[in-house]
Structure formats: C-alpha cells, structure tokens
Write a protein that binds this DNA or RNA. Structure first.
Lengths: 358, 358
DNA sequence: GGGCTGGATGACAGCGCTGTCACCATCGGC
DNA sequence: GCCGATGGTGACAGCGCTGTCATCCAGCCC
C-alpha cells in the first residue's frame, strides 16, 4: 500500500493539513476533540511523517551527529566505548524522532578540520556530540565551532571555552575508589598514571591523591608510576611496584588495560590476586569481565552521558538557550574479584617470585 | 554565509537549475564545456546538495539501514564486530553520498517484527543490511521481507530464500586453518564446536573435517568437543581434551572466546603455548591480540562484507536488478604466537599439570 | 450591544530538488 | 533541401511538510 501522507490524514479526520501538522508536532492551540480525531486517523492510516519533507520545510534538521575517534583502522579495544555512546545517543534520538549520524574520524589525519567541515556542510546536523578524546583537541573543537553548529562535548577534561559539556566525576570517583581500597585495610596503595595527553585520565590521578588524603594516608612518590594507557606499560609499571622492597598491597591503574597488565605482572611474580594484591582499574572495558580474576573497576556512564548530550542538543532547538555549562553524571564503582581485604600473609610471596624472566 | 542552493549555482554558471542537477547527479547529455562551467560554479560556492530536498523530490531515499543485534544491553565482547561492520557500511555510503542509519535491536524481544516494521516505516531506507545472527532468523528476515525493502543478508549461514547475501568462506578457511596446523606437524588436532544455533559457526566444523581429510588425517570423535561460544565452555572443553590419555597437540576452537578459554586451561595445566600446544581461534576479536600468547585466528572480512552489501543496495537503485545471489569474500588467517610446530618434547607436562583445582 | 481579546483553524506560499516533457539545434540520409 | 533522429537544455509541476498570516468564533469588558 502506498504510504499515507498528511493529506490523507487530514481528509480522513476532516480537518486541514495544518491542524494535523499541529497534532503531530504537539503544538498547542488544538481542541482536545480535534486532537483526538486526528490521532485516530493517524493510527488508522499508520501515518509516519516524512522526514525529508519536514526537514526541507523547517530550519530544524532533526539530525544529531556523533563524532568520535575512529579506532577501527588499528586495534579496537575501545569498540565497546563507542558502542555504548552510540546506544545512549540513539536512545535520545529515537524518543524525539531524530536521526543519528555517526561519524568516526581519525584525529591523526592532518586534514581533520577540513574533513569535519565537509561532513558538517553535507549532513547539516542540528547538533554535534563530540566524544573524548576529540573533545579536548583544540584543532577539532575549533573546526566545529567555526561551523556554528551547536555542540556538546563529552568528557572534555577541562572546561575550556564556553562550549557545553557532559562529563563524569573522574576525580571524585577515583577518590572514592581509593577510599574503598583503604577501607579494605590497604595502607600502601599505588597508582599508575595514564598517558599525559588524556585530560580525563589525568584527573584520575588527582582523585587518587584526594582519596589518600581523605583516608588519612600519605601519598608517597614511590607509589606512583607512569604508564601510557597500554597493557604493556601497565605490566612494566606493576612489576616495578611489586619488586619494591616494601611493595604496595593495592594498585589502582588509570585504565583497565594497564590494570590487566598489573594482574599479569602479579601472576608472573606468583602473587595471588586479590589474596596478596588488590588491583583496580578504570573504564570497565569488556576485558574487565573476562580477566581472571574479574577486575574491579570504575564504570563510566558513557551511554547516559551521550544520551544527555543528545537531549541537550535536541532541546536546544526549542528554547534557543545559549547552550553552555557543564553537566556531570556520576560514574560507579564495579566491585569484582580483583580487590579484597588485606590478608594476614600479604607479604608472602609465591615460589616463583624473584627474578623471573621478563 | 547562507548556504548556497542549486539556484545560486545555476545563476553563477549561467545555466538552468536542471542542468546543474544533471551535473551533480552525473547524468549524461551535458556538453563538456557546460559541465566544466557548472563544476566551477559548484566549487566556487562550495555547494552541497540538500539531502532532504533530494529525497523529497525523488523516490530514491539515499539511506541505507544497518540492522544488527544489540549487545550493549548485556556484555559487549562483540562490539568490535559491530564497529567493523559499521566502518564498511559507512565507507560505501560516504562514497556514494548516502547516509547510514544504524539500528541495533534485540532479537530476544518478542515484538522485534513490529519494532523493525515501525523503524522501516519511519526511516524508509532504500535498502537494509542485515547482520548475523539476525540474518538467519526467519522471524526477522520475514518481517523485513514483508516491508518490501531491498535487503542484503550478511553471513546468513544457509542460502535460504532468494534474498541476496554476502558471506565469507567459513568452511573453506576453516579447512585451510586445519591444513595449516597439519602443516606444522600436528597429527592430533582437536576441534571445539560452537553454539548449535549459529549457522555460520557450524560451518566451521565442516571445514575442520574437510581440512583433516585433505591433510590425510583421521577425524577421531575423541577430538571433537562441544562448546557454546563462551570463554568458560572453551576452558572446560580444553581441559577435557588436554586430560585425555593421548591429548591433542593442537586445538582449533570455533571462536576466539573459546580459544582464549583453551589457553587458560593450558596455562592451568602448566602447558606452554605454543611450545607444547597450538591453539587457534576464529573471529579475530580484540582479545586475540591482547592474549598472551597472541592468538592465531581467522579474520572475517566484516568490513568488506558490509561495504559490499551496502554497495549492492546502492547500485540496485540504478539498475533495478533483481537483487539476488550470494557473494563471497574470503576470510584470512592471522598467524600469531599461539601456534607453532610440534616440538620434540610435546608430551612433556609442566610441574603443575595434574589434579589442579578447577 | 459594540468593541476587543485570544484561542482554534485553515489558506497558501514556499523549502531545494528531480522527473517529465517540450523545445531547439544539429546532423546524416535520401 | 526536406525529413526524422538525436543530443543538449530549460520550463514547470510537484514531492510532503511547516511558517506566516488571515479568518472565524467565543467570551469578556464597559
């Protein structure tokens, strides 16, 4: 059957198409009886408004773009990260009858500014959700700002500029994780920092320091190692920490990949996790549940963040609000198997402890 | 600056808008000189055709929908799978000036048929790319067929119906993997089957049998175990195989999760991989590169498959071809660290071999 | 009751593009 | 030199909707 148009509905309901339009768009100034009549006709004909016609006739694009760094060209450990954001953004779009355009792009490309510009010119989204780490790259942010398209940044790390953003409490939740470790009896809690370019990840270190302080613990420089977000760097840092004369009993890594590396380092040294060493990570990548033991970690509310960002953009079209300010959606701690209370024999090492091959 | 329209271009080039339209759509019957003039004007004004107007004016929707099973509600090990398909589909869409709509949905929902129907009515895509495992679920396939929207199925497992499909040579490449293992000197090659509902995964078993035969090896029932695609089932199956009196020297699992389980089982039994046991998987999930040792596996050309599917759909709009037949894009074997030649001391077990705690 | 206000509704003109068809040159064949 | 065929081009009517503005009818004030 040919698709029903607004004319068909108007005819069936005995009103003008304009009135149907009002009902569809939930505009005021329609009598209840009329509205009911129209709604009945809509149902009977299973009418769906034509997106293209709507967009053409009104300045509103009903299109949100989600721009993120494309990891598919190399490794894809962060695929879950992207999927979760998509899920959130899609959810907001679906309920508002908007469409979502996904735009993976590679920030290492020199021409990313031009590329984004072309995409924006082409798709003409009503708003843009910009994911981390693109959200804290001046080049990228500026290219988008230049187009004048409303934008919400996800986890921008710092509140630069007036752009609106949605973030999570990286620092606060990291402090909470540290306090949680302290509450298990740990006194020597180490931290492995992430790659310095990642602002949001850097905030986690600050949270760690806060947490130590709040728990009345000293932050010793010996218990802070540098990593670069990779599994290998986590393993190396973990090994260095565990081979100290007075090693920590808990290690908190700024991301899950490094935490997984720490678990491996511990295994190679014959240490039981969590019996002799507690390990915590951050991000809740899928690996966190597959690891053995499963990894206690911080779960970022990525989906909610992206959903909120899309909502802000959608609502912005109505009330022309200036679109600024930062929203915060709290992260949660996922307690799994890799953390536990300090045991009596914490200092005991397994037989394979010392001098293992790298 | 306000966005340039086709009128602006026509005026600048001194032709009618229809001629500009012809140039933009690469239609014939435009003199070269005219075409050049128009193209120059387009560049000067950096004109981009308005999608909505185009769609409204022509039956062609310039929209492809990618429908896949939404894993985000539970665990997300397959996020990479989705991302790779998206990448391929996006690539086809971008180069043809099409838009991509992603539609994750949960096949466990009772109302999935109605849901898909509503989505299709709403978005009106010109074609649908249906990913596995949805592509071999009759309920889902029928719901889409009922809408009359052109569809290409990805890895449908079997060639049911007349729908067009793009698949990979699961069976052939599995045979190749088996031959590869045999070529390393392995004579006792075990296989761990996947979940029976997954057609494409079932084909891998057939390939394994083919491969044994092609290598002149006997397929012994003792060397085939059942799994359910999960890590845990792989570990259990691996353990059973390795505790046989005459255990295999190579284990080929129908997917990577199970292969990872086998590696863990081997580690617990003190077996060195690949020194004493070769392990191969299938899918090339991101975990495959993070495992230690990294996993030899079969990489499905997901991105190419999705790209091809989208291309077929896009091209179908031009030449009204009946849209049927199955295309095949070959998978590749990724040789990594987990497989190696049979060593002299293959039968030697590590000290922790027997009777370890489960 | 006259004049007003404001809510409810409809007429109408596009939004920017494509499909159809008409038009005007050419051009080759007789 | 006349004809039909063909290539190149443009006029024009929508596609299905929304924004604007006009219209109409109640209800209200004095």
């Amino acid at each position: 059957m040919p698709r029903a148009t607004i004319n068909d509905v108007a005819e069936l309901a005995g009103v003008s198409i304009k009135t149907v339009s009002r009902v569809v768009n939930k505009e005021p100034n329609v009598r209840d009886a009329t509205r009911a009549k129209v709604e009945k006709a809509i149902t009977r004909l299973s009418y769906h408004p034509n997106m293209s016609a709507r967009n053409l006739a009104s300045p509103r694009a009903r299109l949100i773009a989600l721009i993120y760094h494309d990891t598919s060209s190399y490794d894809i450990p962060s695929a879950g990260y992207v999927i979760r954001m998509q899920t959130g953004a899609l959810s907001a779009c679906r309920s508002a009858d908007y469409r979502l355009v996904i735009y993976p792009c590679d920030f290492r490309t020199g021409s990313i500014g031009a590329e984004l510009n072309a995409m924006i010119e082409h798709a003409r989204p009503q708003g843009i959700v910009l994911a981390a780490p693109l959200s804290n790259m001046p080049r990228v942010v500026q290219a988008i700002v230049a187009t004048g398209t409303p934008m919400v940044r996800l986890s921008p790390g710092t509140q630069g500029g007036k752009q609106c953003s949605v973030a999570t409490n990286d620092r606060g939740i990291s402090a909470a994780m540290t306090r949680y470790l302290a509450s298990l009896g740990h006194r020597k809690i180490a931290f492995i920092k992430g790659h310095p370019s990642h602002k949001a990840v850097a905030n986690r270190y600050l949270g760690y320091v806060d947490g130590l302080q709040q728990s009345g613990l000293d932050s010793s420089e010996h218990f802070v190692e540098n990593g670069d977000n990779s599994f290998g760097s986590g393993e190396a840092a973990g090994r260095r920490l565990l081979l100290l004369k007075a090693p920590p009993t808990a290690i908190f890594a700024a991301n899950d990949d490094m935490a997984a590396g720490v678990i491996r380092a511990a295994a190679l040294l014959g240490l039981d996790v969590p019996g002799q060493l507690s390990v915590a990570g951050c991000d809740d990548i899928s690996l966190a549940r597959q690891l053995c033991p499963t990894l206690t970690t911080i779960r970022q509310p990525l989906s909610s963040m992206a959903e909120r960002a899309a909502q802000i953009l959608i609502r912005n079209a109505d009330d022309e609000s200036p679109l600024q300010g930062a929203e915060m959606i709290p992260a949660t701690i996922e307690i799994r198997e890799s953390t536990g209370p300090v045991s009596a024999n914490t200092r005991l090492r397994g037989s394979r402890a010392q001098g293992l091959p790298e």
